[in-house]
Design a protein around this nucleic acid. Structure first.
Lengths: 178, 178
DNA sequence: CCTTACCTTCACAAATTTCTGAAAGAAGCG
DNA sequence: CGCTTCTTTCAGAAATTTGTGAAGGTAAGG
């Protein structure tokens, strides 16, 4: 039976330098920055908490307790984060608990995912060029905007390749897990 | 109150191929995509309307009429757009009217502007590395995330340079105005 | 096969955001 | 110097979003 082995008291001497208050301060501060960038609050907080965790993976219960939110809120936040590929869920074989994990390479997975969104912008723009007329001023403006996005799309892919190389050079060949 | 005289009939022969309905359809559709990406509704609609305009510049009154929104709404939307560098305001010398304009190179101005946001993420991450300890697992994860952003920051600058070249090659040397 | 533990979904309450009407603030023009 | 025209700001109404409690579903363990 999987005990919820999560002793609050920091009995371990020396090794456990993790001050919950420091962690919380970082979590809330970083989450606030994400919120300002347009990320919904709960997903931002959950993501920050995972990022600041030692193992890079927490259970729903742990998240709920640390952030003082209901299981429902955790569920919603995690669904959002999974959808934009910022966390993945793992099922523990011996237990019913899911664990939610951040990989360090998920940032660019998320960035890549954002391209799907841009593709829909491009579709709308193409339609606009057609319906307004490619030979009109507005049509030309739309076409140029479209060209910009298409250009960026191609560049991002190459950039990610370079990041991968840069990362291995700097941090050694990680396996992708924080 | 300004009478909502919006002649449906297209009286101009030949020259005015601009079907208001087509324009509106594009504006609303494209704006919807922006909204889905996190842009507030009114700014998205105003921006789309400017993008689809012939001159690339409209007055507050024109925007209000076309989108059926109040002057206050236009004011708010324009303030937002100016803040993220997606439109610029121009004052017409002979009149009291401001005109709001999109440049075709404002997309990457906006993208560049986004870096300011990322810089604050980086600050938060640096603080986290310090307070959690650079030698802890969490600290290392934060450090790597920080490195990713710093990398992207540098890359984006170079990418924009390439876009400028690509643009001139494809569209001829524009002056930056759509 | 039933119990237990966990996750999700649903309806609702609360808080924030969004847009409007009205008044005040600038800036040209007579 | 006051009038006119346009923009902005402010307070409030309306709508959307957000988070909770409770019920429902699924799978492990006895």
């Amino acid at each position: 039976m999987a005990e919820p082995r999560e002793p609050r008291e920091v009995g371990e001497p020396g090794r456990t330098r993790r001050d919950p208050e420091s962690v919380s301060r970082f979590v809330e501060h970083f989450a606030a920055q994400l919120v300002e960038a347009g990320v919904p609050r709960m997903p931002a907080r959950v993501f920050a908490a995972l990022l600041a965790s030692d193992t890079g993976a927490l259970t729903s219960a742990e998240l709920g307790e640390q952030l003082r939110i209901s299981p429902a809120a955790v569920s919603g936040a995690v669904r959002y984060l999974a959808q934009v590929h910022l966390v993945s869920r793992e099922r523990e074989p011996g237990s019913r608990r899911d664990r939610y994990r951040v990989h360090s390479d998920q940032w660019y997975e998320a960035l890549t995912n954002r391209e799907a969104l841009i593709k829909r912008w491009e579709d709308a723009l193409r339609e606009g060029v057609t319906s307004l007329g490619a030979d009109t001023p507005a049509g030309r403006r739309l076409a140029e905007t479209l060209a910009f996005f298409e250009f960026v799309e191609g560049e991002v892919e190459a950039m990610m390749e370079r990041w991968r190389a840069h990362r291995e050079k700097t941090f050694g060949a990680g396996d992708g897990r924080g």
